[in-house]
């Protein structure tokens, strides 16, 4: 009897150790098959180049060296960074301002407006790009025809100077409302007594914003900034359709677009894998730096 008892006890102890792994096994199996293995093989691939459809050649670090000497890669990297800066300095402040307005007690029809600003994110990027392609058209587009005060017709998609600003503005239209929702959620989580205490101390609206709202929003801001930066560096479909594959003269090319072109159009899979890994390292560095700057690793 006691023997049986110890045996079942042993079994229960054992299964208690194994069970959690079994419960999460579906994730790990899928992760290893669909993420881990491809990641590893793409890392290996970055040291090879295809020689046709079946065989490949070991090239050492030569893909990485080529990449650092590739002017189109640098152009694409700059365009992508430009978009990220645009997101940071234009899209997120607009999202925050929208959130402040639509969280205010004095605004009527808040639910409708929130929904209205949120809806662009529900539209597939490809459709957005096609519509904005018509809107930005230099000679027949709405912008140049309606906003005549801008002066001479702006070659939004024809002039290398204006291509990325056009992409950034489209990004603002599509994503500002989405980020607004995060900020509204953050604003609603701020305790009212903090504002009351600030008011007792004689703080005006601006001082309350700087000393209460912003510090309280820090985790939300950190999340939105990091996620937006990752999204910005992975930018692909919007400029790909909007600028017809980066035209003119790669002014609309991004890192992922250049990766796609190399992998699928030029059949240079090793080089494409290299771009992917360089992009990964870039995003990792920027994300960690941002989290550090925003104090997310700090002990509260």
């Amino acid at each position: 009897m006691s023997n049986y008892h110890t045996l079942t006890k042993k079994f229960w102890n054992q299964q208690q150790k194994i069970a959690p792994y079994l419960f999460i096994a579906p994730f790990y199996i899928l992760f290893i098959v669909f993420m881990g293995y491809p990641l590893l093989s793409s890392l290996i691939m970055s040291f090879y180049e295809m020689r046709g459809f079946q065989s490949r050649i070991y090239v050492g670090f030569s893909n990485f060296i080529d990449l650092f000497n590739d002017p189109i890669f640098w152009k694409s990297a700059w365009n992508t960074t430009y978009f990220a800066i645009g997101t940071l300095t234009l899209q997120l402040p607009i999202a925050l301002i929208l959130a402040l307005i639509l969280n205010s007690k004095h605004v009527k029809g808040k639910n409708f407006l929130r929904l209205a600003f949120f809806t662009p994110v529900l539209v597939a990027g490809v459709f957005v790009a096609i519509i904005f392609n018509l809107i930005y058209d230099q000679r027949s587009g709405i912008i140049n025809n309606e906003f005549v005060f801008l002066g001479n017709e702006i070659g939004w998609l024809n002039d290398t100077k204006y291509v990325m600003p056009a992409v950034i503005l489209t990004g603002v239209w599509q994503w500002a409302g989405f980020n607004m929702i995060y900020f509204i959620a953050g604003l609603q989580g701020i305790r009212q007594d903090l504002y009351e205490a600030a008011a007792v101390d004689g703080a005006n609206w601006w001082q309350a914003f700087i000393h209460v709202t912003l510090p309280s929003l820090r985790p939300v801001i950190a999340f939105v900034v990091v996620v937006s930066m990752i999204g910005s560096f992975q930018l692909f479909d919007l400029p790909f359709i909007l600028t017809n594959g980066g035209e003119p003269a790669d002014a609309g090319s991004t890192i992922v677009m250049y990766l796609y072109k190399n992998g699928f159009q030029f059949m240079r899979l090793g080089y494409a894998a290299t771009i992917g890994w360089v992009l990964f390292i870039l995003i990792a560095i920027i994300s960690i730096a941002q989290l550090k700057l925003l104090g997310i690793f700090r002990e509260e």
Partner: peptide, 14 residues
């Protein structure tokens, strides 16, 4: 688009 499919060794063309 055909060009990319002709890369590499002849026996490996699809």
């Amino acid at each position: 688009s055909i060009g990319r499919f002709l890369k590499g060794a002849i026996e490996e063309i699809g």
